[in-house]
Simulated assay, not measured.
Amino acid sequence: MNTKRILIIGGPGTGKSTLITELEQQGHTCFHEISREVTAAAQKKGIEQLFLTQPLLFSELLLEGRIQQFNDAENLTVEYTFYDRGIPDVAAYMDYTGDEYPDVFREACKNYTYDVTFMLAPWKEIYEQDDERYESFEQAETIQKYLTSAYESYGYSLINVPFGSVSERADFILNTLKNN
């Protein structure tokens, strides 16, 4: 049995990581967001915001990490594997910043595809900035548009997750998967 790859996407601060943690606590196999790890590693080297100072390097590290996560799920024998962000996120963020990137990014978006994609919308009531999340809420809303555009351009149908408690959002996702 090949695992179905379930992607949870959305702009910064939409509740993706909290939702992934909830799904993991319910016993599901989850791959966590890696951008905070990349940012923290750069900060230890004295680079405050690698994404801002070296966006291509930052994005290459994210792409490499997300491809590794994708490959790590290849031989899993669980029904679902959940991902906090996917490979097309990398291209979407580069489009958002207006930075050029090599075709290897586009090829990765085409070659590594997910089965179902859930979109979490910006939610002002839960949005918080911190040391790794520097974007304002307004920037998060703009990033959301770039994410939507990128995923749709690669043929994804996005399922919008309604606002609600973490358990309500997890239930929505799991019930949607059962009914498909």
Score class of each variant (00 low, 15 high):
T3M: 04
T3Y: 05
T3L: 11
K4P: 01
R5M: 11
I8T: 05
I9Q: 00
I9F: 10
I9S: 01
I9P: 02
G10H: 04
G11T: 01
G13A: 04
G13H: 10
G13Y: 03
T14D: 02
G15Q: 05
K16S: 08
S17K: 04
T18S: 07
L19A: 03
L19I: 06
I20H: 05
T21P: 01
T21I: 13
L23C: 00
E24L: 03
Q26S: 14
Q26D: 10
Q26F: 00
G27N: 06
H28F: 12
T29R: 02
C30K: 03
H32G: 07
I34D: 12
R36G: 14
E37A: 08
V38R: 09
A40W: 08
Q43R: 15
K44E: 14
G46F: 10
G46N: 09
I47A: 06
E48P: 03
F51C: 14
L56A: 02
L56I: 06
F58R: 01
S59R: 08
E60S: 12
L61S: 08
L62M: 07
E64K: 13
R66M: 11
I67L: 09
Q69L: 10
F70A: 02
F70C: 13
N71W: 12
D72A: 14
A73E: 04
E74Q: 13
N75S: 08
L76H: 11
L76N: 07
T77I: 11
Y80S: 02
Y83L: 13
D84L: 07
D84F: 08
R85W: 03
R85Q: 11
G86S: 15
I87K: 02
P88N: 14
P88D: 05
P88W: 12
D89C: 09
A91F: 13
A91W: 07
A92Y: 14
Y93F: 15
D95T: 14
T97Q: 11
E100W: 09
Y101G: 00
V104C: 05
E107A: 12
C109F: 02
K110D: 12
N111I: 07
T113Q: 00
Y114F: 13
Y114L: 01
D115F: 08
D115Y: 12
D115V: 14
T117W: 02
F118G: 01
L120E: 07
A121P: 01
P122Q: 00
W123G: 04
E125I: 10
I126S: 00
I126G: 04
Y127A: 14
E128N: 07
E128Q: 09
D130C: 03
D130R: 04
D131M: 10
D131A: 15
R133K: 13
Y134L: 08
E135V: 01
E135M: 06
S136I: 15
A140R: 03
A140P: 09
Q144W: 01
Y151L: 02
E152K: 06
S153E: 03
Y154I: 07
Y154H: 04
S157E: 12
I159Q: 11
V161M: 01
V161D: 03
V161G: 00
P162W: 12
P162Q: 06
F163A: 09
F163S: 09
G164L: 02
D171M: 07
I173V: 04
I173F: 01
T176L: 03
L177E: 11
K178A: 10
